[in-house]
Design a protein around this nucleic acid. Structure first.
Length: 279
DNA sequence: ATCCAGGATCTCC
DNA sequence: GGAGATCATGGA
């Protein structure tokens, strides 16, 4: 099999895939990962600093998916300046990059994420793909397109285990199919406008919208505020005080500015693994 | 067994 | 705008 090597600085494959932003990867026995995005599937590994693609298809797509062109060294340096907490979080997982994932996948996945555990979210998505996606390899299924989900009822989503989120999924599919969510058009909107547009979908609140903004639209100034980030940020930056969501957002924006999204992911992964602010 | 999860919505003030 | 109850489900 053809191998392609790629040297990408500040990049850990495992940290990037396993830090909670992505649900569509599988760790293989030999320390490789199989990743699926859209209709594409890739198997890759990391030996030392070098990424190894097993199979030479769509390499440029995957380099974009892993945000290969961005200078994360500079981002980390800016964030670490005068910030011991952030320095600690970054040194815990210095190889995180923010993936560029497909819009509809992010929309559906983060609707499913609400009030749910990450392992269970992955399971739901896997079942959703197996049921309605296209087989693109041995046991591998693409995330279903809006068209593939056009006839799926709430009942069927419930049968997969989606629970109260079933209604949200049908609403999302319907609104996407009705138009108004074409990525090329959405790219032109300001972050605030795009957030409002996303929140017009039932089951998409600010946090889910912000995850879509960050992980799919590259709006790196957003700071998705979930239960973990709330704990970590309150504990480490607000001396444990209970601030309102609005106050927390304002504070994070002042602290991290245009790099808030990157900061959020370093903090999220660190705080969740260290169980900061819990117990 | 009981708790809790990358929340959103509804109601009520 | 903010506080509280409710929502399904299963992994830990």
């Amino acid at each position: 099999m053809e191998k392609v090597y790629w040297d990408c600085p500040d990049f850990s494959l495992s940290q990037t895939l396993e830090c909670g932003q992505c649900f569509r990867y599988q760790k293989e026995d030999n320390d490789c990962y199989t990743v699926i995005s859209g209709q594409r599937v890739v198997t890759l590994g990391q030996a030392g600093g070098s990424i190894v693609f097993y199979g030479g298809e769509d390499i440029s797509f995957w380099k974009g998916y892993f945000d290969g062109e961005r200078n994360y060294g500079e981002i980390k340096q800016q964030l670490s300046r005068n910030d011991p907490v952030m320095s600690e979080a970054i040194s815990f997982a210095p190889g995180i990059r923010i993936l560029k994932q497909e819009f509809f996948e992010m929309l559906m996945s983060f609707i499913l994420s609400q009030n749910n555990h990450i392992p269970r979210i992955r399971g739901l998505i896997q079942r959703l793909c197996g049921e309605y996606g296209t087989c693109i390899g041995p046991g591998q299924y693409s995330f279903p397109t809006p068209e593939q989900l056009s006839g799926v009822s709430e009942e069927e989503y419930r049968r997969l285990g989606c629970g109260f989120r079933a209604r949200y999924l049908t609403d999302a599919v319907g609104k996407v199919l009705a138009g108004g969510f074409c990525p090329g058009e959405l790219d032109q909107l300001s972050t605030a406008e795009l957030r409002q547009r996303l929140m017009s979908i039932c089951g998409v609140g600010q946090k889910v919208a912000d995850c879509i903004l960050l992980f799919s639209f590259g709006r790196y100034e957003v700071f998705p505020m979930d239960v973990w980030i709330n704990r970590v940020y309150s504990h480490a930056y607000c001396s444990g005080k209970k601030l309102s969501l609005l106050e927390l957002q304002k504070s994070a924006a002042e602290n991290f500015g245009e790099n808030a999204g990157f900061a959020q992911q370093y903090l999220f992964h660190y705080g969740r693994n260290m169980k900061i602010g819990k117990g």
